[in-house]
């Protein structure tokens, strides 16, 4: 089964070179263990564009904050045998990445990969 993980760090400071190196090493290990399908950084969600369709009317509103340009949050698509395994991967990632918050969403796969 596949899970999408997202992570938003709570600090306002950009990551130190040491932390970036540790994160790079971690991603490499995850890829080598065959669980990581895709990963990437995201510009702060506050910089994102909010979308809405209400009553057939579509609106797109740009995020309001500009001062957090260098900050990058992350996402990863992983393939594991259970939700528990995905949670453990997220725990390990966050231990390396530092304080923050995240979410795990299971990818819907028709015809298979459904939880027991």
């Amino acid at each position: 089964m596949k899970f999408l993980m997202t992570y938003v760090q709570s600090t306002k400071a950009p990551p130190t070179p040491e932390r970036l190196a540790a994160l790079g090493k971690f991603s490499q290990e995850m890829a080598a263990s065959g669980v990581l399908l895709m990963t990437g950084g995201l510009q702060r969600p506050t910089k994102g564009t909010q979308l809405k369709l209400a009553g057939g009317k579509f609106t797109a509103t740009d995020g309001p904050f500009a001062e957090t340009k260098e900050l990058i949050d992350g996402f990863a698509l992983v393939q594991t045998k259970s939700r528990e395994e995905a949670i453990e991967l997220a725990r390990r990632f966050m231990t390396v990445a530092g304080d923050g918050e995240g979410e795990i969403l299971q990818v819907y796969e028709p015809g298979g990969g459904l939880p027991k």
């Binding site: 263990s33 669980v35 594991t80 259970s82 528990e84 395994e85 991967l89």
Partner: peptide, 10 residues
Amino acid sequence: HRAIHAIFRL
């Protein structure tokens, strides 16, 4: 226990 088994599997 399920969580521990998952950690162990990794």
